[in-house]
Every structure is written in C-alpha cells, then in structure tokens.
Write a protein that binds this DNA or RNA. Structure first.
Length: 339
DNA sequence: CGACTCACG
DNA sequence: ACGTACGTGAGTCGT
C-alpha cells in the first residue's frame, strides 16, 4: 500500500493498517490490485476450508460427515459446531453455494430445511411490547418494509424503495447488536449525522424499543446479568468496568443476549419436541443439523409433507410469545435447493 | 499461540 | 471525550 500510495482506511484491533474486505473495497477504485486480492482470497477460503477439508471428514463407516455440537459452546446459549463446523457452510455467493450443493439426500430421500422467520426481531417485539412492532408482526407484514415506511415517512409500505428497505434492515439488525450511529453509517456508507437522524427517527416511531433497551442496560448494571424469556442468565462481569471499551462491549452484549439467547432456547425446545414426534417415525426421517434458526432433515420422499406439518407445528408451538412464530420450509435433493 | 481474516446465523 | 454492531470456528502466517 505504501508503494502504490494507497491509503489504509481501516485499522486492525492491533492498530495495524488492515487489509480486510472493507479496507480493500475502499481503495479498489484507485488500483486493480485490491479487487484481485479479494477475489483470490474468496476462492482460496472456499478451497482450503471446505473443498479440500470436507471430503476428508467423511466417516468411512457411515459415509457421512459428522459434526460435534456443543450444548454449552456459546455464552448466549446457542449451540456451537466444530470438527467440522457445519454451521458456517457457504450460502451468500454462487461459488459458495456450490459447496452447499454437495450435501445431498440418499436415494429415495429428500432434504428439508425449516427456518424461523425473523425470530430475533419477533423476540424483540415480545420483550419490548412495542405497539408498532407488535402490530407489524401480528398483521404479517414484511417488518423491514414496515420499518422503512415508518422511518422514511412513506405513505404506505408499497412505496418503500429497495434502498429504503435495505437501510431499515440494517437499522433493525444494528439495534439488536447495540450499534452506534457510527456503526450504522459505516454499514450503509452514509454520513454519521444522517445515521443518527435515522436512529432518532426509529426510536421516535418505536418508543417501546428504546424503553426496553434502557431497561435492559439498567438491569444488567444493577444485577450483573441479563436473562432470556425463559430465565436463563448471561452474567456480564465487565458491565460496570472502569475501562470504557470493556464496559461498552458488555453493554452491547447485554442488549443482544436476551434476543439471541431466547431464540436459542426456543429452537432447543423445538428440537426436543421434534425428537419426541419423530421417535416412532425414525425410519422415515432424521433430524440431521441445526444452524441457529434452522433445522435440517432428511426424509423419505413420500413422507415429506407429513414431516413438514409435524416439524412446523413443533417449531411454531415451541414458545407462545406476544407475536406468532413463523416457520419457512423448503425441499430439495441437496441442502442448497432446500432453501 | 496470537493476530488477522472470513465463513455462517 | 471515546470507540464504535452480537455470537461462533477455522485456515494461514509469523513467532
């Protein structure tokens, strides 16, 4: 970067000039090299982590890849997956999806994927009891579109542009992570002041969400922990630290953990229910993977619809919140098609 | 073994 | 004023 006079705009946690995707993207217009490096890195990652590793992970006795799930692997209550990690199989790029297509159903069977729709935002609606958010989910609206209509003042959700919806989606996700105006600005490529305006507008339209977040921070500082809907706690030893960076990090974790943790509780309850439902039907279908808000099955082709209705009921009824839980399902001969 | 990067929700 | 979005696992590189 020195030689080509390209300025680094991002620093690593160690204070060095970063060469990560964001940093290279920022200087890609000044020289052809950054984009070539990104392209190479993306392909090298897919090859070294997946293409060259997964075939060696096939168990010769079963002909399958078996991951390890860790029940207490993540602080929030999520499962973790390792050796190999099957919770980070690519999906976001076309080349990546070629990896996912390699996970196939045996002859005569199909893959079924079932995922919770917007589960963490639904939990935020439940916990905050915010009237606008509850209404959006109760009426089955596209919640990012509804948020965009509120924040950007569209007369109706149909008038929301794709850019407005994208910005609203970033706001919705960012809020659940305890983001700042700076973080939103960076995510959207806009000025800090503009991002701050969006956030202020959001909280004006969804006052229950702001009150909930203030409550959660206060409770964390007071009690030293936050908890999920079902009462499972995450202790936050840094929540009152004098070191501002540590303290701010703990505050963001305090905001996020009840939502991420409740979602983890709910899908685990669903898995127990699915297991019980499936037990007398074990020859017809297997629950084979969990990916945080998704369950994956293999199923006899002629049993697929029966499985779908059984699993959807288990997942939908795993918790009774102030908003409905919605489950999306898909089938395919491979995991990619099932989405 | 730590730092960095990047795959996923 | 300050740093700046949550939670993971794994590959590569340098020490």
């Amino acid at each position: 970067m020195d030689e080509l006079k390209l300025d680094a705009v991002v620093k690593t946690p160690g204070g060095q000039p970063s060469t990560n995707e964001e940093a290279l993207e920022a200087i890609a217009d000044a020289h052809p090299l950054p984009r070539l490096i990104l392209e190479y890195r993306g392909l090298a990652k897919l090859r070294s982590t997946y293409t060259e590793k997964l075939p060696g992970a096939i168990n010769p006795d079963t002909g399958r890849v078996h991951t390890s799930y860790h029940q207490a692997g993540a602080a929030t209550g999520r499962l973790a997956s390792s050796d190999p990690n099957l919770q980070n199989i690519p999906i976001r790029t076309e080349d990546g999806r070629r990896i996912r297509k390699a996970f196939i159903a045996p002859p005569g069977r199909r893959i079924m994927a079932c995922d919770y729709s917007q589960i963490e935002l639904r939990i935020m609606a439940h916990l905050s009891e915010d009237a606008g958010l509850l209404r959006a989910f109760e009426s089955g609206q596209d919640v990012h579109r509804a948020t965009a209509a509120e924040v950007f003042g569209a007369t109706s959700p149909e008038d929301v542009t794709s850019d407005q919806r994208r910005a609203a989606k970033a706001i919705n996700f960012g809020l659940m992570y305890g983001m700042s105006a700076f973080g939103l600005a960076r995510q959207l490529g806009i000025a800090r002041g503009e991002a701050q305006d969006y956030i202020a507008l959001y909280f004006a339209r969804y006052p229950g969400v702001r009150a909930y977040m203030d409550r959660t921070r206060a409770q964390a500082k007071d009690q030293g922990y936050v908890e999920t809907v079902f009462g499972r706690r995450l202790y936050l030893p840094d929540i009152n630290a004098r070191n501002q960076g540590l303290r701010a990090g703990a505050e963001r974790a305090a905001i996020n953990a009840p939502m991420q943790g409740t979602a983890a509780d709910i899908i685990k309850r669903a898995m127990v229910a699915v297991d019980a439902w499936l037990r007398p039907r074990a020859a017809r279908a297997l629950m084979i993977m969990q990916v945080h808000d998704e369950l994956v099955f293999e199923v006899d082709a002629d049993f697929a619809e029966t499985l779908r209705s059984g699993v959807v009921a288990c997942m939908r009824d795993a918790a009774a919140l102030r908003v409905p839980l919605v489950v999306d399902t898909g089938f395919g001969d491979n995991w990619d098609e099932a989405h």
